[in-house]
């Protein structure tokens, strides 16, 4: 994913990532609406940081929007990270738990 990719390459990759191996149209609809949903969800969650300070929320929101557009399609990553693989789940549990401990113990 070099930064010198042309717009054409990006669009091609985007389409390709969607359509790879899944020709059924009903599955495609799912992926398309899933992608849109994810982007909106992530933006709403980013907006939560307004609770701490409004400028921070704005910066994070803009950053997240940029990141989401850069890494699109996010739905593929989502699907991969939600696999029921034990190592994967264990990894995320460890991350979550560390976040809970860190926020609650040292967040005050």
């Amino acid at each position: 994913m070099g930064s010198i990719d042309s717009i054409y390459d990006k669009v091609k990759k985007y389409i390709h990532d969607f359509a790879s191996g899944r020709g059924a149209s009903s599955a495609m609809t799912g992926y398309m609406s899933g992608e849109l949903q994810t982007v909106v969800f992530i933006m709403i969650i980013a907006a939560f940081f307004r609770l701490f300070s409004i400028p921070l929320g704005m910066v994070i929101l803009i950053g997240v929007v940029a990141a989401v557009l850069y890494f699109a399609p996010t739905i593929k990553t989502m699907e991969r990270e939600n696999a029921s693989d034990l190592n994967q789940v264990l990894f995320w549990v460890v991350i979550y738990f560390a976040a809970i401990i860190a926020v609650t113990l040292w967040g005050r």
Partner: peptide, 24 residues
């Protein structure tokens, strides 16, 4: 996810997380 993937950035993240948990 294969175990091999834990050697990269993910591994470091997991390690840091475990250190935080143990410290807590």
């Amino acid at each position: 996810m294969e175990m091999g993937e834990l050697k990269g950035a993910r591994g470091i993240v997991a390690l840091v997380a475990l250190v935080i948990i143990f410290a807590g």
